[in-house]
Design a protein around this nucleic acid. Structure first.
Lengths: 152, 152
DNA sequence: CTTGACCCTGTACCACGGTACAGGGTTTAC
DNA sequence: GTAAACCCTGTACCGTGGTACAGGGTCAAG
């Protein structure tokens, strides 16, 4: 069992067999040597590579970003500053997403609290908050303001 | 100017003209009446509808979910409990995403702090954390454990 | 030496929320 | 009466991360 087939590697790493082929096409894992019949044969280093990918994915890195991290890993003389820069950029991205979600969370929680959940939709505070409550005003001043959360 | 063309409506609502057509195809906005030449003619209620959609999107609702919210809005005798259920489900979803992001955030922040950002990749604590540091152990026990963040 | 489980390739498809044509027709201002 | 600026339709495409065939070939057990 020093080498594995694609399916064995996939099972061992908890991914689908097609995912292996997909990562190979994306250049995340090298083209594996083949058996006489054309079967890919993977060694233990393929498991390490998939573990790396899984961990990086769990931190929110995209596949192109993981490709760059793998390339840096493969090139020990490369620039450590680049690794840190990728990590800090991802940290900023994650924090920005959290801030967006926090805005949504607070409004959703408030709306859910305001709504009894009983009776007809007519008069529901959630629907009223979403609906354009400015029909009396001129349309001009109501288009770009008044969103429930702020962006940008 | 009591009616607008598609482009005028789009500009007024801060979306692209193709988005209007896209929402119409998805059933989020009704099919507009047409001019003799076949042009869509929109009234002020179309602006209201797009404002509703924009607000719901800002809260994280998907287009199918927004479709359901709009249908409830259009049917004042409908079930207010359904509106609340959709809101609470979205709240749960948003909180789950925030928890995922918080896990990522804490690991990314710790890794960024540990990495000097100077010198070669060789020895970089970020790359070491991602790489399979268990090559000495048997592969069997290292595949499904040891992720940097927990899921599920 | 056959059978079933696997593997190979290329290609199409999924959800998501749009965006971008091509090849026409209409409207409006000059 | 013409030219720019818009509109119409259908359809294809974008990025993201895979998943699912079809139509073959291979490998291992019995």
């Amino acid at each position: 069992m020093s080498t594995m087939t694609r399916g064995q590697l996939a099972k061992r790493c908890g991914v689908g067999p097609e995912t292996i082929r997909f990562y190979e096409r994306r250049g995340l894992i090298p083209e594996a040597p083949r058996s006489q019949g054309g079967y890919r044969r993977f060694g233990a280093e393929a498991v390490s590579r998939l573990v790396f990918i899984r961990r990086a994915k769990a931190l929110g890195f995209s596949l192109p970003e993981i490709g760059e991290l793998l390339a840096l890993h493969d090139n020990p003389g490369g620039d450590r500053g680049r690794v840190k820069a990728l990590t800090e950029a991802k940290l900023d991205e994650v924090e920005a997403k959290m801030a967006d979600l926090e805005r949504m969370r607070s409004v959703l929680a408030e709306l859910a609290e305001q709504c009894s959940g009983h009776g007809p939709v007519d008069g529901c505070p959630i629907i009223e908050a979403l609906a354009d409550d400015s029909r009396a005003r001129t349309a001009r001043e109501t288009t770009r303001t008044g969103d429930l959360t702020r962006h940008g």
